[in-house]
Design a protein around this nucleic acid. Structure first.
Lengths: 330, 330
DNA sequence: CTTGTCTATGTTATCGATACCATCAATTCA
DNA sequence: TGAATTGATGGTATCGATAACATAGACAAG
C-alpha cells in the first residue's frame, strides 16, 4: 500500500480511504490512486486490515454435507442474504460428524468470524464451550434444540414428521413402516423417527415397523436395500415413510425393479422435497421445509446482531414453515 | 497471548511455540501453558499470525455449484487431500457465472490464499490477470483449456462425449439426439456438445438433433421438457444423450410418464455418473469422470507447489480418467 | 476581519502474533 | 578442564493495514 501511495503521490492513509470509503478522497486523488493500483497490480491485504480494524468481514457456516441439496440450498440462502452487506461466507461441511464439527469450529474461530451459523443438533462439549466463549452471535439451524447456544432458526423435525403421518393416515393408510436410523450423526433424522413413532401411538395406530440401514445419511441405494428388508419382515406394510426423499427414491426404484407398483402395491413417502421428488415417476409425497429461507433468515439475524443497532432486536427462536406436499407416491 | 503467557509464567514467544511446535518447549512449561489457555478460553488469532509469518494456511477453491454432486465430490477430494497438511480449504461457488467468479477470486485473493483451484473454462480478463499476478500456484480443473493459466487437472469433455457416442453407435444406434446448450456459463457442457457433433460427423452418421432448453445447468425438470421437444420435432430419434445424468433422469421419467418405454421406445444416456444413474429404473448409461480424484490430484499438486521443494516437480497437465458405464437405459 | 465549520489529507500508534537474534544453563567432547 | 554444542527461553522488530487524532486550506457567517 505504501508503494501505491508513493506512485499516486499521496499517503497510505488516503489509499486505504480510497478503497473502503471513496467519498472521503478527492476525485483527482482517487483517480491517481486507482491508476497506481492498476499499474502495480496491488491487491488489498485483509489480514492486516482486520488486525487493525477488528473486523474480519466474514461469517462462518457449517453444514452436515455439501452434497445434499437441502443443505446447499441453505448455504445459498445465506450467501444471497449476505450479498451487499460487506460480509462474506466461509463455508465448511462436517460430513455429519460432531468431531469433525469441533475441528471446523476451532479452525474457523481462529480466523475470527463475526458470526457463525451451525446446523443444530448435538455438539461436543468443547464445541459448545468454544461457541459460547467466542463472543459472537451464533445461530443454530434446521432444528429446535432443548438447550440452545444463542439463536435458533429452524423447525421441529418431529412435528413435521407427525404431520406427514397424520396426512397419510387421513388417506386411509393403517400399517406404517419407517426407514431411517437413530444416531447422534443425524439428529434431525432421529427426531423425525421419534415424531413418527409418537404420532402413531397418539393416533392409536399399530406401532410402526422400523428399519435402520447403513450409516446415516442414508443413500438412495440404501433406501432400496432397506425397503427390501421391510418387505421381507413385514410384507403387509401399506405405506413406508423414509427419512429423506433420497432414500424414498431408492426405495421406489427398487420396488419398480421388482415389479411392484408404487403406490398400488405399496405407498412410499419421503421428506425434504428435493428436486427429485417432483421429477421422478411416480412423484414423491414429501414434506417441504423451506431450506433456502432457513439460510436467509439465519443470515439476516446474524447480520442484524453484528450491526448491533439497538433499535433492531433479534428473536431468539424463529420457527420456519413446513408443509406436506401430496403427490402420487403415497 | 500475552495474558496466557503471564498466567503460565512464560513469555509470549513460548506460548506461540507451544501452539505451533510443542517440541521446542519443555514439558513443564507446555503443561502450564495448556492450563492457562484452557482457563482463559484463549483462541489463537490467525490473522495476526499470518501477517507476521506470511503464511495464511489456506487454499481457495471455486466450483460452479455446491448443489451438484460432481462438483461437491471434487470439493470433498480437495478437503481429504488437504487433511493433515496444515492447509484449510476456503470454498466458494459462483453459480456458473464468470462475473461472480471474478468477485469471488478478488475477495479470496485479498485474504492471501497460498494456492487456488478454479474450475476451468472461460474467465473474465480481469480474473485471469488477478490469478496470474497473484504469485501463487493456480490449478484449473475439470477441463483442458487452450490457454492455461498455470496447472491443469482435468480431461477433455469433448473426447469423453465422443467416446460415449462411439460406444452407443457400436450398439447399433443410428439417429442421435442431444440435449444441452452451448454457453459461456457452462463451458464443460458446451465442449460435450461439440464432442457430440464432431463425433457423429467423423463417423459418417446423420447429424444429430440438438435441443437447448433453459439456462445451463439444465435441471431434471428441464431435461423432461427438452425430451418432449425432441420427440415432437424428431419422433424417430433412437437415442438421446443428455449433458448430464440429471437431465437424462428427467427425460427418462417424463418418457415413462407418457407411457414410453426406455430403452424400448427410446434410449437415453447421460454424463457424470451421478448416484442417481446407478439407482434409478432403468439405470442410466453414463460417463464416469472421477470427480473425487480431480479434487485430490488438484490439491496434491497445489500442496507440492506450496511446499516448494526442488525435488518434487509438478506436471503442468494432468489428465484424469473417464470411462463409459453401460447400463439399461441405452 | 475574525471565528467557526467543513473537507481533504497526513502522522503516529496500534492490532496480535512470529522471525530473528541473543542469552544462559546443561551437557558433550577433545 | 576449557571449548563447543545443544536445548530452553526471552527481547525486539516487524508484518500491512487502519483508528484516532492533527493539520491545513477553503469557505460561510457574524
Amino acid at each position: 500500500m505504501a508503494d501505491v501511495a508513493r506512485h499516486a503521490g499521496v499517503s497510505a492513509m488516503s489509499v486505504s480511504r480510497a478503497l473502503k470509503d471513496p467519498d472521503l478522497v478527492s476525485p483527482a486523488a482517487r483517480q491517481r490512486i486507482a491508476a497506481a493500483i492498476d499499474e502495480l497490480g496491488y491487491v488489498l491485504d485483509l489480514a492486516a486490515g482486520s488486525l487493525s480494524s477488528k473486523r474480519t468481514g466474514f461469517v462462518a457456516a457449517i453444514i452436515p454435507s455439501l452434497n445434499n441439496s437441502n443443505f446447499s440450498d441453505t448455504a445459498r440462502g445465506i450467501t444471497d442474504e449476505l450479498e451487499g452487506t460487506g460480509l462474506q461466507l466461509l463455508l465448511g461441511s462436517n460430513d455429519y460428524s460432531i468431531e469433525r464439527e469441533e475441528e471446523l469450529v476451532e479452525a474457523m474461530l481462529r480466523r475470527r468470524p463475526e458470526g457463525i451459523i451451525v446446523t443444530s443438533g448435538s455438539h461436543t462439549k468443547r464445541t459448545r464451550r468454544m461457541l459460547e466463549a467466542a463472543g459472537i452471535p451464533v445461530v443454530e439451524t434446521w432444528d429446535v434444540p432443548d438447550a440452545p447456544i444463542d439463536q435458533i432458526v429452524g423447525f421441529s423435525n418431529a412435528e413435521a414428521m407427525a404431520l406427514l403421518v397424520r396426512t397419510l393416515a387421513a388417506k386411509g393408510y393403517h400399517k406404517f413402516g419407517y426407514i431411517g436410523g437413530t444416531t447422534e450423526r443425524d439428529t434431525r433424522g432421529s427426531q423425525r423417527r421419534e415424531g413418527f413413532v409418537s404420532a402413531l401411538s397418539r393416533m392409536g395406530l399399530p406401532s410402526g415397523r422400523l428399519i435402520s440401514f447403513g450409516v446415516p445419511p442414508i443413500s438412495m441405494e440404501q433406501g432400496g436395500q432397506a425397503v427390501v428388508e421391510m418387505l421381507t419382515h413385514w410384507p403387509d406394510t401399506e405405506v413406508v415413510i423414509c427419512v429423506s426423499d433420497l432414500s424414498a427414491f431408492g426405495a421406489i426404484m427398487e420396488c419398480q425393479r421388482r415389479g411392484m407398483k408404487v403406490p398400488g402395491d405399496i405407498a412410499i413417502a419421503g421428506f425434504g422435497n428435493y428436486e427429485i421428488a417432483e421429477c421422478c415417476h411416480p412423484r414423491i409425497t414429501s414434506v417441504d421445509v423451506d431450506c433456502y429461507n432457513i439460510g436467509r433468515q439465519a443470515a439476516r439475524q446474524l447480520h442484524i446482531s453484528i450491526k448491533g443497532e439497538e433499535s433492531e432486536e433479534v428473536p431468539s427462536l424463529t420457527l420456519t414453515q413446513y408443509r406436506v406436499i401430496e403427490r402420487e407416491s403415497a
